[in-house]
Each structure stands twice: as structure tokens, then as C-alpha cells.
Design a protein around this nucleic acid. Structure first.
Lengths: 118, 118
DNA sequence: CAAACATATGAACAGATATTCACATGTTCA
DNA sequence: TGAACATGTGAATATCTGTTCATATGTTTG
């Protein structure tokens, strides 16, 4: 059974709707934005980011700090790397990860501000 | 078979690890932050936010603008409402939604800045 | 070189999540 | 009041996602 939507048949609202619609970001931009925030939307990854805000760290230390396994952390670091939120350098046996960009901290802090207001 | 992790047995690194660990947000704060960003991490919700940045809108108009159904939008508006990202008021037959807070726009824009840099 | 270790990766499983569909609720106004 | 409409909601489904486990890769150093 099909659902007919009659909402807003008045000309004025159709124009309003179209005006808003034409001012939105493209579907691709929206998708990329959502993908970015999806990366922030996981506790393990947020802990990693939080740790790297304090100190550059190797995978193994991040695992210790976050009470996780090196394997799980490695998987998540890949996600963070793909989103250009972290970068890495090699030092001896270790791979040292660090935040890639000031925006990471800024997004983190903006989120914190919102949380605190509730 | 248990995996023993030997990483960082030197005293200096144990101290470093503990220092970082003690400076992190609590698990609860991290969880709340991740939950917040999870809300931003969906294309439909991002479209809704983007539309509400331009104009306060009723459910039905949001559905038209986002090429979605009123039902799907209603479900997502509930998520946005619970995260205190949108608020609503009643006007006649309609329920008009709007952004709840300046942080919403700010987080959106910070994300955009990061995307643009890639 | 070989042992020891740090990191990466692929497959598999379990849990989370968005949409759809059917229907319920609640409002307006003729 | 009752038809028409706008919104909300619960269950079901299909898809996505994070962790685990086993194992591979690659590096250091004895």
C-alpha cells in the first residue's frame, strides 16, 4: 500500500523547500562529512585520539593505555590513518603514531563543549 | 594460546604510559563523546542538520528536501533530539524542528574544514 | 642467520544500526 | 464529530562494524 504525501502543496512552501534544497552541500560532501564523524564515533578510537593528544605513542603503548589488544588498536589506527586523523613514523622496532592535524583536537574539543552543556 | 605482550618493560616507558593514562578523560566522558559523534556519523542525519542550518523545517519538508520518507526522518529526528542537537516547537498541524545549539554548526564546520584540507 | 618482538592483516562472529512497513496517535477544520 | 493529514513508533530485516584469533610481515640484535 503506497503512502501518498500531500505535505506542502502551497506554492510558497515548494519554493522554500527548493531554496533550501539548492543550498545544501552535495551528496558527496555530506557523505564524506558523515564518514569523518563516523571515525570519531567509537570509544576505542576516541581513547586513541585522546591519548595521542597528550603524547606520540607506539601501537603497543596505546594498547596498554586503552586496555585493548595491539591487534584491535592496529585495526583502528588504520581507520584513523585513512581518515587522515593520525600519521606515523618508524622508530627502531616501533611505529610511532601522532595526530595528523590541528582539526582533530578542535573537533574533539567542540564535542566536549557540547557534552558539558548538557 | 595466550599472547604475552612484552612491550615496554623499561621503567621509563611504564611511567610514561601511566602518566598518559592518568591524564585521559574518564571512560564515561569518552563514551559520551563517541555517542555524540556517532550521531553526526550518518548521511541522513547530516543532511537534516545541513537543512536546519538554512531554515527551521517540519518533518515533512525535511523528508522532501532529503529525498527520504517522513517515517525515516522522524526516527532520525528522535536521535538528534536525544543528543540535544535539535529542538522542536509545534505550529498548527506541524512540528517545526530547529538546531538546538551553536555547537552543532561549529562541529559541522570543523568537519568541513578537515575534509577540505584533504 | 635466527630468535624475539612489534605491527599488520584476513576471516569470522557478534552486536549495533538505518530503513521499511504497518499502524497508532494527535491535530485541524469543514 | 469525522475526514484528512502530520507525526510518532514498534517490529523486522538487511547491512555495517568492531573485536578476536590465527597468522603473516618486517625489524632488531644476540
Amino acid at each position: 500500500m503506497e503512502t501518498f504525501i500531500k505535505c506542502d502543496e502551497e506554492v510558497s512552501n515548494i519554493e522554500l523547500v527548493n531554496k533550501v534544497k539548492n543550498n545544501l552541500l552535495s551528496d558527496e560532501e555530506i557523505f564524506d562529512l558523515a564518514e569523518l564523524f563516523k571515525v570519531f564515533g567509537d570509544s576505542t578510537r576516541m581513547k586513541i585520539i585522546n591519548a595521542l593528544m597528550k603524547q606520540d605513542l607506539c601501537v603497543c603503548d596505546i594498547a596498554l593505555i586503552t586496555n585493548s589488544t595491539p591487534s584491535a588498536i592496529s585495526h583502528q589506527l588504520r581507520v584513523l590513518k585513512q581518515a587522515k586523523l593520525v600519521k606515523y613514523r618508524k622508530e627502531g622496532k616501533s611505529v610511532i603514531y601522532s595526530l595528523d592535524d590541528e582539526h582533530v583536537k578542535e573537533i574533539f574539543e567542540k564535542g566536549r563543549e557540547h557534552i558539558e552543556e548538557i
